[in-house]
Simulated assay, not measured.
Amino acid sequence: MNPGRLFGLLGKEFAQMLRDPVVLFLVVWLTTVEIAMCTLAVGMDVKNLKLGLIDHDRSAASRALTEDLTSADSFILAGLFTSERQAESGLKTGKLDALVEIPPGFGARVASGRQVSVGVVVDGSNADVASRARAYIIEMTARFAQARLMGSMRMTAGVQPAVRVWYNPNLTNTRFEALAMLAQAGFMLAVILPAAGMVREKQNGTLEQIRVTPIRAHELFLGKVLPPVTVTLGSLLPSLLVLRLLHVPMNGSVTTFLGLEALFLMSAVSIGMFVASVTNTLQQALLTSFFSLFPLLFLSGSVSPIESMPRWLQIASEASPLRHGIAIVTGLFLKGAGMGELWPHALALALIGAPLFTASWLLFRRQW
């Protein structure tokens, strides 16, 4: 290997990427604006649900239950009604997400410690919103009943769990979404940049010109692999500021983060080079890249929990570099984990990336 030729190729690739406004816009957009926008828009936390109320009791207890339901940011009181029929139009038009009906004698039954039922109607047209609204109401009414029961009995006998939540005390999904978007942005860039750069050489005819120069295949291969990894790794640094603005703590080591991210990005770049070797136009490269990205995205655990997948898909998800990339960033940022805890994911990335890198090199060498 000739260092002069290699550094010349690296300089050419860096100059080509950094003077392309489309590439610069894509890099900046994916690693800053899209992380913030998708985190705030795609978060799974459901807030400010529109709650309708029918209070047949109008007692201090019913007013206390109403206050408990609407005191947090889960529900906002969207209307008071006298009957379910009157509130039905609100559910049909989307002005209400849920309806709570408090029966007559509610306060007297609560005060005497007797069982009492509260009617709940939830708009099930959006299953995710409906399930969360139902869970919120069940949790809040159970907490209300327990507090009232303890107050009336003047005792705290029994087993009471003392729950402490580590790493995400508020149980919001924003932090995980932000870190998942960070991993996804880096992965997408590391796949698309080398694929697009290599195919552009084919379309412009410059690859044929390079072949008649003293440049060797392995030098050109490294010249196409190293710049996308370096640019993507550098573009993740502004993402740290975005994560800070989204209140995502960095409890781990930045050095460990950059080292493991480089390993993660190598597997993504290998996919990009493989795509570039089997396509001839930019359109083909982009379509093939997205065709490979979406299955890996769905198997990463960022769209739905891996535990909820069928067993065979859980096993298949181990082959997704994105799954291990997300596990690494969440472990580093939220848990303060180091190599002692993250080495299984680093090993998995090495085992995934090595055959991908070898396959892309062999295919590239065959076409050289």
Score class of each variant (00 low, 15 high):
P3F: 00
G8A: 12
G11H: 09
F14P: 01
A15N: 07
Q16C: 06
R19D: 07
V22D: 00
V23W: 06
L24G: 05
V33E: 06
M37L: 15
C38E: 05
V42Y: 11
K47A: 14
K47P: 09
L49Y: 08
K50N: 03
K50G: 00
G52P: 09
I54K: 03
D55A: 11
H56P: 12
S59G: 11
S59D: 02
R63Y: 15
R63M: 14
L65Q: 07
F75H: 04
G79N: 04
T82S: 11
S83Y: 13
T93L: 12
T93W: 10
V100D: 11
E101I: 15
G105W: 11
F106Y: 14
A108P: 00
V118M: 05
V121A: 14
S125Y: 06
N126I: 10
A127C: 01
S131W: 04
A133W: 00
T141I: 04
R143P: 01
G151C: 11
R175H: 11
F176Y: 14
A180T: 08
M181Y: 15
F187Q: 12
M188P: 10
L189H: 07
A190V: 04
A196P: 00
G197I: 08
G197R: 09
G197M: 11
T206L: 06
T206P: 04
Q209F: 14
I210F: 10
T213E: 13
I215Y: 01
R216Q: 09
A217C: 02
V225P: 01
L233D: 12
L233M: 06
S235K: 08
V248C: 06
S253Q: 00
M273E: 01
M273S: 05
V278C: 11
V278M: 09
T279R: 08
T279G: 12
N280I: 01
T281N: 05
L282V: 10
L287Y: 10
L287S: 06
F291Q: 02
F294D: 05
L296C: 14
S302M: 08
P305L: 04
E307C: 00
E307N: 06
M309L: 12
R311S: 02
S317E: 09
A319Q: 05
P321Y: 04
A327L: 11
V329W: 02
A337F: 14
G338A: 07
L342K: 05
G353V: 01
A354T: 11
L356F: 13
F364E: 02
